[in-house]
């Protein structure tokens, strides 16, 4: 895949000429990106390059100002029904976990399935417990988020996103707020998800993880996609000098 490749018809996420402005400042410019079902896309780039903005446009935490975003065949416009459909297909994991501090881990997980998917409490609980096993913390179900370590909290957050059975998962620097010794437990869970065929779009600076998991690497700078390439090619023979400089900096330490 190269930036010039024509849009494929069966992409689950499709962005064409997406623009986003904060006042006069262009946070995103002419973003074109297709993501196939099951594809793992990892986005990297310097601070302020628009990575978060891009990923947050995909579930309308930010509203794009121009261009078109289509998720799973549904266009992201002002329509609230479309938005509800998209949000039920797209899960998100945040840098700061954003767990609900006044609820137990289990309640964090079952709230959305019960309120949005209209599951019964027991159904939701079954899903939640099986997901907590998958992220390897079933014994923490009745604790409050503040009683868990950062790594455990982030794994709960991943389970919470999975509870809605999304087709696409978004991660915005999921390990940046973690102590070093907890990073791998979260990355392991993510790698496992990836191997099970989940479509993932992930902003991260964990290049070892990217090499292992990503199908496609995207490098952003100043609100634009500078380079998009298959992982091997991206790391071995980056085309843009800006990508090269970035990779040199980030891989040198």
């Amino acid at each position: 895949m190269t930036p010039t490749q024509p849009a494929s018809p069966d992409a689950v996420v499709r962005l064409s000429d997406v623009q986003k402005f904060y006042g006069d400042y262009a946070a995103l410019r002419d973003i074109n990106l297709d993501v196939q079902a099951g594809e793992k896309v990892i986005i990297c780039g310097p601070s302020g390059s628009g990575k978060s903005t891009l990923i947050r446009c995909l579930n309308r935490l930010e509203v794009h100002d121009g261009g078109k975003i289509v998720v799973d065949g549904v266009e992201m416009d002002g329509d609230t029904k479309n938005l509800a459909t998209i949000r039920s297909e797209v899960g998100m994991v945040f840098q700061q976990f954003n767990l609900f501090p006044h609820m137990t881990v289990l309640d964090n997980l079952i709230l959305a399935p019960m309120r949005v998917r209209k599951c019964t409490r027991d159904e939701a609980k079954d899903i939640a417990m099986s997901l907590l096993e998958r992220v390897r913390i079933p014994e923490q179900a009745d604790k409050y988020p503040s009683q868990l370590s950062g790594g455990q909290q982030q794994r709960v957050a991943i389970a919470r996103a999975l509870c809605m059975k999304p087709r696409i998962l978004l991660f915005d620097e999921p390990t940046s707020a973690l102590d070093p010794e907890m990073i791998s437990e979260v990355l392991d869970v993510m790698a496992e998800l990836a191997s099970e065929g989940m479509t993932m779009i992930c902003v991260t600076h964990e290049m070892g993880f990217a090499r292992k998991v990503a199908d496609t690497m995207v490098f952003m700078d100043k609100g634009q996609i500078v380079e998009k390439a298959p992982t091997e090619q991206f790391f071995n023979t980056p085309q843009s000098p800006r990508t090269q400089i970035f990779l040199d900096q980030i891989l040198s330490h």
Partner: peptide, 25 residues
């Protein structure tokens, strides 16, 4: 803001977001 964003990302309605996430806190 993260609390609101998490609720939005999960697809909770405005009313549910108020009732279960924002008001209790």
């Amino acid at each position: 803001d993260g609390q609101r964003e998490a609720a939005d990302a999960l697809g909770l309605s405005y009313g549910d977001k108020l009732r279960f996430i924002i008001l209790p806190q």
